[in-house]
């Protein structure tokens, strides 16, 4: 399937994206470097990495909602060929939620506690569509809640009257309110128990098929990615570690970090096997090691690793890894 979609022009095209966090008088922190990927219509891309690897920064950059200290230094984000980084604030605001919506961790505090769930969904519709008729608006909200399996009569209730799983469902209903092209799901199952997690993932998978959604799924959980995603982008310390279709990632990972992540993940066929933790801690962006960012934790380090950050090498045309060990198998640097 991935190859078939790759032939069409991409819906979203991110290339060579660099983002800094500035905090004068300190030197800027390199939050993202050289992020390049595409998203096809109907495709689900998993973005995987530890906390602080830049995955949330990347999502906020796509919506241009970085906190005040964030600076987009270089790169391009194109949606259907339109450069988002060149849009003025008004045009960007009009595009948010209408074209790219975001599922925040609804179980936490992403819904306003003092407004009803229905109001918060209706607000998104009112902002982007010309629906002023109260009845029509109520009907839309009810349909959306119905779509995610919440009784329409509960739209008058407040988030605190919902369970964690229901709040996440309501968040999904809200994200779908304006029929967006792309839905960004930022750790949508964090803080939910396993049963509810499975339900939410099933819901996302169903909706994706039903509505031809493109999904960017941000998570640190490779298991979730396996269930939902066509392709996977593994991030480490603000750079791309590996980018390939899900199958390749699970069965032929080329980057030592991806391999370590997979080993840290339980294998259901080997229940007795002890999980391998990745030694050390993710790098601090203000204190990066010289050369490859993964060197302090990498089991395969050799001299060259300390000299420069490896570029993305194409292991196969649809599989890239930023590791010098991948160079030998590829024809040269991809990007």
């Amino acid at each position: 399937m991935p190859h078939a979609i790759l032939d069409r022009p991409p819906l979203l095209e991110v290339s060579h994206l660099d983002v800094d966090y500035v905090d004068p008088p300190h030197p800027p922190a390199a939050a993202l470097r050289g992020i390049t990927f595409t998203l096809q219509r109907g495709e689900a891309l998993g973005i995987v990495g530890e906390s602080g690897c830049g995955k949330s920064t990347l999502m906020l950059t796509l919506l241009r909602l970085l906190p005040a200290a964030g600076r987009i230094v270089a790169g391009s984000v194109r949606l259907d060929g339109v450069e988002l980084l060149d849009l003025d604030a008004r045009a960007m605001a009009a595009l948010r939620w209408k074209r790219i919506a975001m599922i925040f961790q609804g179980a936490m505090n992403a819904l306003n506690p003092v407004r009803t769930v229905g109001e918060q969904i209706a607000e998104a519709i009112r902002r982007h569509e010309d629906v002023t008729n109260r009845r029509a608006l109520d009907r839309r909200v009810s349909e959306l809640l119905d779509l995610v399996g919440i009784a329409a009569s509960r739209r008058e209730q407040y988030p605190f009257q919902y369970s964690g799983g229901m709040r996440q469902r309501a968040m999904i209903a809200m994200a779908l309110a304006c029929s967006p092209d792309i839905v960004i799901a930022d750790e949508p199952t964090t803080a939910l128990d396993v049963m509810i997690q499975a339900q939410i993932l099933q819901l996302l998978a169903d909706l994706r098929r039903q509505l031809q959604l493109s999904i960017l799924l941000v998570t640190h959980d490779l298991g979730i990615v396996a269930e939902l995603c066509d392709r996977v982008l593994v991030m480490y310390g603000g750079v791309m570690a590996e980018y390939a279709d899900a199958d390749t990632i699970y069965n032929g990972a080329a980057h030592p970090y991806t391999q370590a992540l997979l080993q840290a993940f339980p294998d259901p066929t080997q229940p007795a096997q002890k999980l391998a933790a990745i030694p050390g801690a993710p790098p601090r962006l203000t204190d990066l090691p010289p050369g490859c960012r993964f060197t302090p934790r990498c089991p395969h380090v050799f001299a060259r690793c300390h000299t420069a950050q490896p570029p993305l090498y194409a292991v196969t045309p649809a599989h890239q890894a930023s590791c010098f060990r991948a160079e030998t198998t590829s024809g040269g640097a991809h990007a």
Partner: peptide
């Protein structure tokens, strides 16, 4: 600084709407 303010921004609401509808009452 609350998460729901970020949600409101992501919905495309403008500064005034965020202040009026999401921040002041709280």
């Amino acid at each position: 600084a609350e998460d729901y303010i970020l949600t409101a921004k992501a919905k495309g609401l403008n500064h005034f709407q965020i202040l009026k509808d999401h921040a002041l009452k709280n």
